Amino acid sequence: MMRVAVIDDEPLAREGVLARLAGRPGIEVVAEYADGVAALDGLPRSRPDLVLIDVEMPGLNGLEVLSSLPPAERPMAILLTAYDQFALQAFTLDVIDYLLKPIDDDRFDEALERAERARLYRRPAGDSAAAANYVQTFSVRSGTRQVFVRAADVNWIEADGDYAVLHAGGKRHMVREPLQRLAARLDPAEFIRVHRSAIVRISQLSEMQRLSNQDALLRLHDGTPLRVSRTYIRQLLTILSEK
């Protein structure tokens, strides 16, 4: 479970972020603050793993709040800003992404997935508690039978209305769960979202070709072609650079 705090002096903006987080699997909202001074006072007690924090706030702005916290107590941060720029200082403050206001739903999902991935590398070695929370086995119906599909055997997943389709071992399995919700239950060290309608297992990536419209074309080891939308291309390139 990732502990999250929301910090924004605009009530409507703060409520909008809280609404997006509400009921999201693997997320626990532990605090909200209406200004930087209150956040600086409260964060050492609420101890979130991640803060979604407004850059421009009276008193203390978002970067000042983060820089005032001791490095050992500083959570990961996603900046909320109305401007497509932020200080270079942010790169030294555990800032992993920024979201432009008004917030785009796909970019919001992408930022949280990046936070989940970053959190894997922040937890102490040998700590398997977070990984244990991710889905390990899917239970799906096949006629009159109940079939169990291991997450480790899934090559990629596509959206089909309110269902998700698992592609594993050359077979298709329907799961009664929207892709949006399923994505939060998958281990971000193993799976990555490449399109609003597709998730792939990272180890199945074979090649990628950039397209002229800023999208990209992926090919999996089994030859399956998948499109990567520009919304998710940056995260994918980051993952590939780490391999």
Rank of each mutant, 00 (worst) to 15 (best):
A82Y: 06
P58G: 09
R172M: 07
A132L: 06
L63V: 03
L69M: 07
V194K: 01
S206L: 00
S206M: 01
G143R: 11
Q85F: 11
Y163K: 02
I53L: 06
Q235A: 14
A164F: 04
R219L: 07
G59C: 08
L240R: 14
E64T: 05
A129W: 03
D222S: 12
R145P: 05
E10T: 14
G143M: 03
M76C: 06
R196Y: 06
L93N: 08
L211G: 08
S229Y: 07
L211Q: 12
A38H: 13
S68P: 00
E110S: 15
A184R: 13
A19Y: 14
R196A: 07
G126C: 10
V55D: 01
G16Y: 04
A72T: 15
E116N: 08
G223N: 01
R3V: 10
P70F: 01
A132P: 02
Q204N: 04
Y163W: 05
D222P: 04
V65G: 05
F191I: 06
A129S: 15
L80Q: 12
D215H: 11
I27F: 05
L40Y: 08
K101M: 08
A132I: 01
A129P: 01
R107K: 15
V17N: 00
F191G: 04
V147R: 13
D54Q: 11
L79F: 06
V6S: 01
